[in-house]
Design a protein around this nucleic acid. Structure first.
Ligand SMILES: [Mn+2]
Ligand SMILES: [Mn+2]
Ligand SMILES: [Mn+2]
Ligand SMILES: [Mn+2]
Lengths: 231, 231
DNA sequence: AATTAAATTTAGACAAAGCTAAAAATAGAT
DNA sequence: ATCTATTTTTAGCTTTGTCTAAATTTAATT
C-alpha cells in the first residue's frame, strides 16, 4: 500500500462505529494518556464489554489507541487528533443548527451525532466560516480548532462559587434534554449574569440573583452549571 | 410490534444501502411502474447482480418494491415516496452547499450523497425554509415537494431546438464533474440566454449566441443541455 | 422445437459490528 | 498467600451487505 493510501485509510476510511469509539474514549479522559476500561466504554456507549474488546483490537491495529489486555485503552496522538476532529464537527453542527436553523439547544445533539460523521473537510471549514468561527457550542462546550486546540476558560461550577461573587453563566455540565428544558422553563440561559446571594447549609441550595430576578436553586442544578467569574 | 413501530421501521430504520437502492431504481425509471432489471441496477451502482437480487428480496419484504424473479423490480407507492424524499434531501443539500457555502456545482454531489441520509425531518424542512423553498437544484433538476410532487417545466435539449429559436439554459443532462467544469470554462451557466443561429449538417454542431457572445458547440454538448423555450 | 447465449438467481464465503455464554485474568478480602 | 468476586477476554453465533462461482431461467437464433 502506498503512502498516500495509508493517509486515505486513516482519514477517509474510518467507519462511523470507529469514530464513535474514539470520541467516547476521549470524553472518558483517554486523551490524557489515561487508560480507560472496557467496562467504562461499554457502559457509556450502551454496548457490551466484549464488543469493546473487539474494537479495541481494531483501533490498536490502526494505531489509534494503545491497548493493553485487561488494562484498557488510551488514545495515541493520531487517535486523539481524530477524536478531536469529530468533536469539532459535532459542536460546529450544533452551533449551525441553533444559529442558522432555529433549533433549540435540547434538539441539536441527536442530529449532530449524525452530521459529525459527514466526510468533507471543505464542508466543516465552510460551516465554521459561515458561523464566524465560534469558540463554544450551544451548551458552552469549547470547539476544538482545526489543529486540535481548545479555547481554555476560567470557569467553575455555580455550586463552588463563593457568596456575593458575580459571574456569567457560560455552560452546562449535564446537557441532557430534561435538564436543558428545565433551564429554559426557568429562564436560565447562557450569557445570564448570576450573583450568589446566599447558601443554605441544610440542603446546599442557593439563593441567586439572575438578570435582576431573585430565585432559589437546588444543589443538583447549581452543580451542573458552569459560571465564568468576573475579573 | 405496535402500529407505531411499523411506522418507525419504515421511516427511520431504513439503512443507507436500502435508501441508495430505492433512489437508483427511481432514477432508472422504476417510479413509473416500469420494471428495472437486476443488471441495470448493478451497473448503475457499480455492484454485482447477485447483490441486487438479495436487496430486491429485502425491499420486497418491506413492501417498498414489487419484485418478480427474473423480471426485475419497480417501486411501490411507499417505495416511490421514500425515494422521492431522499432525492428531495439530496437536491436541497446541493442548493445549500452552493448558495450558503460557496461550493461550485461540480463539488456538491459527493457531499450530498452523504447528507441525503441524515434522518431529521425538521432539518430538511428548515434547510428548505432557509433556502426559500427552491424549485430546482444547482444542476437544474427539480426538487420534489414534501408530498412528492415535481415542478414540471417545458424544457427541451439544446440539440433539439429549431434554428433561430431563443431560450434560457435551465439544466444539464450529464452532471459529471468533467462536463460541469467544461461548461464553467466556456462560461456556459444556467440562466444564460441562448439562441440557435445555425446547425452544421456535417457533425450536428451548433453555432449559438449566448448572452451576446457567439460560439460553436458540439452535438455532444448540445445534447446535454436543457433549454426552456421562451413563450 | 432445439440450441445456445445472456441474464438472473442460488449457494457458500467474508468482513464489520454486534450479542451471549464460557473461560481466564485481575484485584479485593480474608 | 489463598480464595473469591469482578472484570475482561475468547469462542461461537447473528445480521447486513457484499462477493465469486455454479446453477437456473429467459430470450434469441437457427
Ligand atoms: Mn452534543
Ligand atoms: Mn454540545
Ligand atoms: Mn447530485
Ligand atoms: Mn443535482
Amino acid at each position: 500500500m502506498s503512502n498516500k493510501n495509508v493517509f486515505l485509510k486513516k482519514y477517509f476510511l474510518m467507519t462511523r462505529s470507529e469514530e464513535n469509539y474514539l470520541k467516547t474514549i476521549f470524553h472518558l479522559g483517554g486523551g490524557d494518556s489515561k487508560s480507560i476500561t472496557t467496562n467504562a466504554i461499554a457502559e457509556q456507549m450502551e454496548t457490551k464489554p466484549s464488543s469493546v474488546t473487539d474494537m479495541a483490537k481494531k483501533l490498536s491495529d490502526k494505531g489509534l489507541v494503545d491497548y493493553v489486555r485487561y488494562q484498557g485503552v488510551s488514545l495515541t496522538t493520531e487517535g486523539k487528533k481524530t477524536a478531536l476532529s469529530i468533536i469539532r464537527k459535532h459542536r460546529l453542527w450544533e452551533v449551525f443548527l441553533v444559529e442558522k436553523l432555529d433549533f433549540s439547544w435540547d434538539e441539536v445533539h441527536e442530529v449532530a451525532e449524525q452530521l459529525e460523521h459527514i466526510k468533507s473537510e471543505k464542508l466543516v471549514d465552510k460551516i465554521d466560516e459561515l458561523l464566524n468561527f465560534p469558540k463554544y457550542d450551544p451548551h458552552g462546550d469549547p470547539i476544538p480548532t482545526k489543529d486540535g486546540k481548545f479555547q481554555e476558560r476560567d470557569e467553575k461550577l455555580l455550586s463552588e462559587m463563593s457568596i456575593k461573587s458575580i459571574g456569567i453563566c457560560v455552560g452546562v455540565k449535564d446537557s441532557s434534554v430534561p435538564f436543558l428544558k428545565f433551564l429554559d422553563k426557568n429562564n436560565i440561559a447562557l450569557g445570564n449574569t448570576i450573583q450568589v446571594l446566599d447558601k443554605e447549609d441544610f440542603d446546599n441550595s442557593l439563593r441567586i440573583q439572575m438578570d435582576g430576578k431573585e430565585m432559589r436553586i437546588s444543589h443538583q442544578i447549581a452543580s451542573n452549571l458552569y459560571v465564568k467569574k468576573n475579573d
